[in-house]
Design a protein around this nucleic acid. Structure first.
Length: 297
DNA sequence: ACCCAGGCGCTTT
DNA sequence: AAAGCGCATGGG
């Protein structure tokens, strides 16, 4: 059991940062982390973890779950504005994970122009077909590790397309080959400056600013990385620029300047909050005649 | 059928 | 810098 306060497993594991967790009827979650089958369950004062093989060192899972992160201290760095206050109130216990770089990179290459439910399906098929088998408890369905870059690099585009990933197949294949060749070296990227690491990732085919920021935030822990997808853009326009027509450059500058040292965390709260809003209001980002709490600089 | 999806790459303005 | 467009696939 890991002691942890303010940790919402559902919001954290099922909100589009990781794609391999499945909920159980009793509120527990099953997944594969670092090639190990894991079941997680929320306890009053922490998180219970169950594996197949007894663990003497849980560092790999504690790091993944970031149970040592001081969420309250992070939230205190947020700017005190109405949208973030409401998002934090509505998404209590939402956390950022610390994922394995290759799995995170590959997953988000597969995410472009896809719904989260379908990203999960593509990744599930990819793991079942090409991932190493992982020991699972009796009665559980077979489990598989996420396929290594070396494994994917040996495949053909046709086998990848058969997983349902469409035009992303050549991107994933090329990225696997580059990573296998050590260009970039994912082991070293986390030690680089944010801008340098982002530029390296963007050299990969199929990786642009948004996917790079996802990897920087979810795998390398760059706290200022701020992935701007359609939902976050919608949130920014609706809650911070109501009635205005901010240019993309203006939105980027605002995001960099407004949200502080844990901007990536703020991003995840806005993302999860607007996605869990009723659809009718979540999409009301274009029809607005009433300026709200909009900043002027 | 039509529209959109945790975008990106390329072309044109 | 920014806007258009195509891209595979699947679900509402």
């Amino acid at each position: 059991m890991f002691p942890a306060r303010d940790y919402d497993l559902a919001a954290t594991l099922d909100s589009g940062q990781a794609f391999r967790w499945r909920p159980d009827a009793d509120g527990s979650w099953r997944g594969v982390v670092s090639g190990r089958w894991v079941r997680l369950r929320r306890l009053p004062n922490g998180i219970a973890a169950e594996t197949v093989v007894a663990q003497t060192d849980w560092a790999w899972l504690k790091d993944y779950l970031q149970v040592g992160a001081d969420l309250r201290a992070i939230l205190r760095t947020f700017p005190d504005d109405a949208p973030l206050r409401e998002a934090v109130r509505a998404c209590r216990g939402l956390r950022l994970l610390r994922q394995e770089p290759w799995e995170c990179l590959a997953s988000f290459i597969l995410s472009s122009n896809k719904r989260i439910a379908h990203i999960r399906q593509i990744i599930k098929t990819l793991c079942e077909r090409f991932g190493e088998p992982v020991a699972a408890p009796a009665g559980e369905p077979p489990a598989f590790a996420f396929p290594s870059p070396e494994r994917i690099a040996r495949l053909g585009e046709r086998e990848l397309r058969a997983c349902g990933m469409g035009f992303r197949a050549p991107y994933l294949l090329a990225a696997a080959r580059r990573v296998t060749a050590g260009d970039p070296d994912l082991e070293r990227l986390g030690a680089a400056e944010l801008a340098t690491a982002r530029a390296r990732l963007c050299e990969l085919p199929g990786v642009g600013p948004k996917i790079a920021d996802c990897v920087l935030l979810f795998a390398f822990g760059f706290a200022r990385a701020f992935p701007m997808d359609v939902w976050v853009l919608r949130a920014l326009r609706r809650w911070y620029f109501k009635g205005q027509r901010p240019t993309p450059a203006r939105l980027r500058a605002f995001a960099q300047n407004h949200f502080g040292p844990h901007a990536g965390y703020a991003q995840q709260y806005l993302f999860h909050y607007i996605r869990t809003q009723p659809a009718a209001t979540a999409r009301a980002d274009t029809d607005n005649a009433h300026p709200g709490h909009a900043p002027n600089s």
